[in-house]
Amino acid sequence: MWYDGGWAWGGWLVMAVTMLLFWALVIAGIVALVHYLTSSRRGHQRPEPPSSPDGHGWGARRAEDLLAERFARGEIDEDEYRRRLALLREQR
């Protein structure tokens, strides 16, 4: 029995490319699933707020740290830094 008029070498090329794409999608799916499972598990663990001398935890310390970072990057000048820092400490 002869299969005359078949795809010849083009059929093999299409099958090879399709097989490569299939396995690439399977591997990418497994990697995405592992990444999702490990990142979602990490997201449920909340760190304990650091203890500060005034007992305010994350909020006050984090705001002051962000303000200090902005000052260090040059986004705000010294006067604005001192004014905002005083305002933050005043609102505690």
Score class of each variant (00 low, 15 high):
M1H: 06
G6Y: 00
G6F: 03
W7F: 12
W7K: 09
W7I: 13
A8I: 06
A8W: 04
A8Y: 00
G10T: 02
G10Q: 06
W12C: 05
A16Y: 01
V17K: 00
V17D: 01
T18N: 06
T18S: 07
M19N: 08
L20V: 07
L21N: 05
W23R: 15
I27D: 08
I27G: 08
I27C: 15
I27N: 07
G29I: 02
I30D: 04
V31W: 11
V31D: 06
A32D: 14
V34R: 04
H35W: 14
Y36W: 11
R41D: 13
R42M: 10
G43S: 15
R46K: 09
P47W: 11
P47Y: 11
P49N: 06
P49D: 02
S52T: 11
P53N: 11
G55Q: 02
W58Q: 13
G59Y: 07
A63R: 10
L66F: 13
A68P: 15
E69A: 05
A72V: 01
G74Y: 01
G74F: 01
G74D: 03
E75Y: 03
I76G: 05
I76T: 08
D77F: 03
D77K: 03
D79F: 12
Y81N: 02
Y81H: 03
R82K: 01
R82S: 06
R83N: 05
R83T: 06
R83E: 03
L85V: 01
A86D: 05
L88P: 02
R89G: 04
E90T: 06
Q91N: 11
R92Y: 05
R92V: 07
